[in-house]
Design a binder for these strands. Sequence first.
DNA 1: CAAAACAATTATGTCAACAAAATTGTCGAC
DNA 2: GTCGACAATTTTGTTGACATAATTGTTTTG
Lengths: 222, 222
Amino acid sequence: MSISEISPTTGGIVDSIKAKIHRGQFAPGQRLIEVDLAEEFAVGRGRIREVFKTLVGEGYLQFVENRGVYVRRFTREEILEMGRVREVLEGLSARLAAERHLSETEKETLRSHQAALDDAETNGDVDRYNAENFAYHATIAAIAGNRHMTDSLERVRLPLYRLQLPRSFSADSMTRSNSDHKVITASILASSPDAAESAMRAHVRAGNEHVLRLAEHYFKNG
Amino acid sequence: MSISEISPTTGGIVDSIKAKIHRGQFAPGQRLIEVDLAEEFAVGRGRIREVFKTLVGEGYLQFVENRGVYVRRFTREEILEMGRVREVLEGLSARLAAERHLSETEKETLRSHQAALDDAETNGDVDRYNAENFAYHATIAAIAGNRHMTDSLERVRLPLYRLQLPRSFSADSMTRSNSDHKVITASILASSPDAAESAMRAHVRAGNEHVLRLAEHYFKNG
DNA sequence: CAAAACAATTATGTCAACAAAATTGTCGAC
DNA sequence: GTCGACAATTTTGTTGACATAATTGTTTTG
């Protein structure tokens, strides 16, 4: 521990808690205690309270009167609904990326991410494929360059973070997923917005069906 | 003013402030003062502070350190970016509505909204057409029945509230807008998701171009 | 008269203390 | 041993006070 800990900004605490939720360190349904976090970040309870409200507004936490806040937990139906929204937003992401005139470095970045996916696929490395999959979609969104789209996407991606562990690709589904990726990558590089969007939508739609096969205990009320 | 004002819930204050922003009672860029609102709602400053943070998380307010919060104000570029997101989300709304098996009362509701639009159009009543336009899109979203879609839509609709006044239809643009509506209505009633989505997207895209013709002073940094 | 320097006011940032509610733990009746 | 009633503890709700920063108003100076 450093000698004099500087009090972190409110935004810093917000990001820190988000990161813990992303990593699964704060599990869905878990109750967060004001005093514990106040001590951890060395700030007053009021600050933590405000941080909680911000995260409620952003959809990360759920508030219950006189009982505090919980990491938000979704029902299967909610996740399927969010999946449909994600479908069109990821589709837009691919479209916007394809509409832009890509710089040579952007093209190279996209190609390298595709290469990483290909590599993970041929090696049958499911965990690495999963991680690269996240990075690939993030890269396309970054190239698309529409801040409000990425904001909206972040919200409907929330259930993915806690579902990323059960999302284990079989060798078969990994091959199918990556053949989608290849089409999307080629469409973006070829500046074909229509093709990029429809390929991405089909890709996300296929992934959403995975949710139907998950056991009940992953969801709220189960 | 009532004799004894009961202290409202945090959620009630949140909704009340949202409503004032929708109505334009709190104008974009306006600074909101903690003590004033604390007095108005008869609660402590802490409560107002938490309400502010929630509204920041939901995108209604902007926070500046040591200077409080302001009603969020967008640049023209931001509004155009949000317009593209709105395009695909409204498209999804129309698609989902068309995919559902509508009850007879739902069909009747949709038809009556279309009739109201037609009536406003033939009478050349621009203000009423504008109001009915809002109601029409809300009705389709309600029929679609995807809560997360409407949440996402609400966020990207934010600039519309403060732009609804300058959005004055000419007789010509009103006719064009309503001919879009007729296609959308028919597609939903005919259970044609593809047609409904593409018609809605074209409709929103056309409306977004309106933003390009607005004077600079409507936007942030202008 | 304009502009800078200073003072007064206003608004936000932070914390500590107390009240109220919920949760947990303990004990006794059956 | 299980269940309910009661007590102890924990956690959240709310307020007030004080410190700090920003804004406004006033005065002084060139």
